[in-house]
């Protein structure tokens, strides 16, 4: 996983609520056995017309947003399916940070696991940042994770919250399996204790 420290980039405004993970990556593209290569299908139904050509009205088909690394939306971003293909598709497109007033739980979690920073900011702040983003290619937003601020093009700063453990993992680009396996002894102890207390829990063994 790539580290996330300070990101200065173009932000794309997508002023919609309830953008579900089917919209971010439709099910027919989930047949891959890899994590990469999904960027071309991100937002497929909004990005392409029925004949396969680009829909010029969709923000990610417009300059400078083709190079966007930040996406700003309204409430409940990433609702629906748990598919991690959604953050994989965003990441493969180039998105490293998503900003919304609220997120669906599983998507929120999946973003962190892939080095994408999800930032929760109030609705009116998201509206302001979308207006900043509409000013064009020079209007970059800076996401400063160590200081936990979004720096707007006019230099003003918007602070945001992030879970300290998740911040640490993002800053260091760490895989959390290694972290958990440092507690392997405790896991084994837990298993032994349970086997004693609830010996009836069946094992799944096929004949």
């Amino acid at each position: 996983m790539d580290k996330f420290t300070v990101l200065s980039a173009v932000a794309a405004p997508l002023p919609e609520e309830n953008i579900d993970t089917d919209k971010i990556i439709p099910a027919r593209f989930l047949k891959t056995t890899k994590r990469t290569g999904l960027g071309v299908h991100a937002f497929d139904s909004m990005r392409y017309r029925a004949d396969g050509s680009e829909n010029p009205d969709f923000v990610l088909n417009q300059e400078p947003y083709r190079k966007a690394e930040i996406l700003i939306t309204y409430d409940n971003l990433g609702c629906g399916s748990s598919r991690e293909h959604a953050p994989w598709a965003l990441l493969d497109f180039g998105i490293r940070c998503v900003i919304a007033p609220s997120f669906a739980d599983i998507f929120h979690n999946n973003c962190f696991k892939n080095g994408i920073l999800p930032i929760v900011l109030p609705h009116d702040v998201c509206t302001q940042l979308m207006e900043d983003a509409r000013m064009g290619g020079n209007a970059r937003l800076t996401i400063d994770l160590p200081r936990q601020v979004v720096v707007r093009p006019d230099g003003t700063e918007v602070p945001f919250n992030v879970d300290p453990l998740r911040k640490k993992l993002l800053l260091e680009g760490l895989d959390d399996i290694g972290q958990t396996l440092q507690h392997e002894k405790e896991i084994t102890t837990f298993e032994e204790r349970r086997a004693q207390a609830q010996p009836w829990i069946p094992r799944i063994v096929l004949d």
């Binding site: 748990s82 953050p87 599983i106 696991k113 892939n114 958990t180 896991i187």
Partner: peptide, 19 residues
């Protein structure tokens, strides 16, 4: 019972736990 992403699937496979 809850749904998880693929990174967490790998985490459960390796550790039988979730964070």
């Amino acid at each position: 019972a809850f749904g998880i992403g693929t990174s967490e699937v790998e985490h459960v496979m390796a550790t039988q736990t979730i964070l």
